[in-house]
Design a protein around this nucleic acid. Structure first.
Length: 472
RNA sequence: GGCCCCAUCGUCUAGUGGUUUAGGACGUCGGCCUUUCACGCCGAUAACACGGGUUCGAAUCCCGUUGGGGUCACCA
């Protein structure tokens, strides 16, 4: 039997990090087994579902490169089928019409709460003669759930868990307006889509017992279930807007690479021995449900950043250059022609990339390559370029005038030599150079910067600084 | 509150009765390298929630306590 899975978010908000991880686990498991991974939008709640949310989810999944198979299934378009199944159950006697009104049910719940009893539907209409039906009241359809015995879930992550059927009441399948409830529609859709493995968040665990009752009532085969623990915030509490409950696009905007997100999310609740950096290709080969832990884990930005730094070091230079240019352009920062900037970024990337944990940092670090002259200096750089420093710079400028070949090692030799002759420490020569060439006190190796910038631009930037032309 | 799940360094985790003075990674703190900042390298810090059992032997099995989480709608 070939594996079929699905990721089934409800479009009431963006794709948050927990949903992203659920999608990843489904995707990995399916790719591992050469199965089919589908996307189903659970939009039966028309009031809360929005097209913006659907777009955000689709975009988030695309950014994470978790491609699904086939067309997206919209649950809302399957209403007729959901109704059909409910009526079939009615005919088979595994469901019944319930004429209790929402008001009555609310009273029932409040009374139960007040008396400290379990909050359940009392089954008023379960055996009652439909002839008693009040006129003008549209009925809801309820499952005639077993009242004795127990329901067992053989969960692939949580293990076997059983619940007494007496704990569960007769849930509503079809509302009085004819629309299906979530419980009913998931079961019908998972069955019709031939889903073999339901991998979802732990928050659905207790729903599983009820869904199983529907499968049993219909005499349908059940899929395997795997409930993965939820993600918590850094403080151990539920994810809140302040940390992890951000949409994945927020992580994209913070400068994280999708492959870093995948690796990080994978390690949250799943392990393969002591392995930490696991590329997606490798993860597909290794991923199994029995490697999923059962305790919830916390989102840790520091570790995500560390992983992101790793993938920045691995990434293809052209891709990073594009990302930098896009970010600089978005801020209106680069001033030089884009082909010039791109050339510099490509040439200087190996000096840039080990210094950044995110694309945001990378872009900030690289910005000086795109600035037009005279460079604006940051506070520390301006302070560094005092009279004495400018005088030293003038000396370097002169020494550089007859530089033969403009290479990193050649420049290094010239400046080092010059500093030695002047009896100045290399650092006292390098820092003013850095300030003059980058406008900052932090940058890649200064000789590399000069080599990337080229003789003309380097000399001009130096001349600007010597002449004190830089704005602060 | 009922039902259900969970519990190893600050965090993510390895560990499935003895090979463990509990391993790795991130973080933190030192040091080395060094033209700045990073990277890299070396070292240090730090955990089996608690209490009972079972066993020759328990982080590993059982029970309880405590703590955390999930769920109890004509929401999904």
């Amino acid at each position: 039997m070939s594996v079929v899975t699905r990721f089934a978010p409800s479009p009431t908000g963006f794709l948050h990090i927990g949903g992203a991880r659920t999608a990843l686990f489904n995707w990995l498991f399916t790719r591992r087994h050469g199965g089919t991974y589908r996307l189903r939008i659970e939009d039966t709640d028309r009031k809360r579902s929005t097209v913006e949310a659907i777009a955000a989810i689709v975009e988030g999944l695309k950014w994470l490169e978790l491609d699904w198979d086939g067309e997206i299934v919209f649950q809302s378009r399957r209403l007729a089928r959901h109704g059909e199944v409910a009526r079939q159950m009615l005919a088979a006697g595994t469901a019944y019409r319930c004429y209790s009104t929402p008001e009555e049910l609310t009273q029932m719940r409040e009374r139960a709460r007040a008396e400290g009893r379990p909050i359940r539907y009392d089954g008023t209409w379960r055996e009652r003669d439909p002839c008693d039906a009040p006129a003008g009241v549209a009925p809801a359809i309820r499952l005639k759930a077993p009242q004795t015995g127990e329901t067992l879930v053989e969960d692939r992550v949580q293990g076997p868990v059983r619940v007494a059927n007496g704990e569960l009441d007769d849930m509503i399948l079809l509302r009085s307006d004819g629309t299906p409830t979530y419980m009913h529609s998931v079961v019908v859709d998972d069955h019709d889509m031939a889903i073999t493995h339901v991998i979802r968040g732990d928050d659905h665990f207790s729903n599983t017992f009820r869904q199983l009752q529907i499968y049993h009532a219909l005499d349908w085969p059940t899929p395997a279930f795997a409930h993965i623990p939820l993600l918590h915030g850094p403080d151990g509490a539920k994810l809140s807007k302040r940390h992890g409950a951000l949409g994945v696009e927020a992580y994209r905007d913070m400068g994280f690479l999708p492959e870093a997100m995948r690796n990080y999310l994978l390690r949250l609740g799943w392990a393969h021995g002591d392995d930490e950096t696991i590329a997606t290709e490798q993860a597909i080969l290794w991923f199994e449900l029995d490697g999923v832990g059962r305790s919830p884990s916390r989102v840790d930005m520091a570790k995500l950043q560390n992983l992101n730094a790793h993938y920045i070091r691995e990434a293809e230079a052209g891709r990073l250059a594009d990302a930098i240019m896009a970010r600089l352009a978005a801020d209106g920062r680069p001033k030089v022609a884009s082909d010039v900037l791109r050339g510099r970024l490509l040439a200087g990337m190996d000096g840039l990339r080990p210094r950044a944990k995110t694309l945001v940092e990378l872009a900030d670090l690289a910005a000086f390559y795109g600035l037009s002259r005279p460079l604006a200096l940051d506070g520390k750089a301006a302070k560094l370029l005092d009279g004495a420093a400018r005088e030293r710079l003038a000396g370097v400028h002169a020494a550089l005038a007859n530089a033969g070949e403009w290479t990193e090692s050649g420049l290094d030799a010239i400046v080092r030599n010059h500093a030695e002759q002047r009896g100045v420490k290399l650092g006292d020569m390098a820092q003013p150079l850095r300030a003059a060439l980058t406008g900052s006190t932090v940058s890649p190796g200064i000789f590399e910067v000069m080599a990337v910038l080229g003789p003309e631009e380097s000399r001009s930037r130096l001349a600007d600084a010597i002449a004190g032309l830089n704005p602060v």
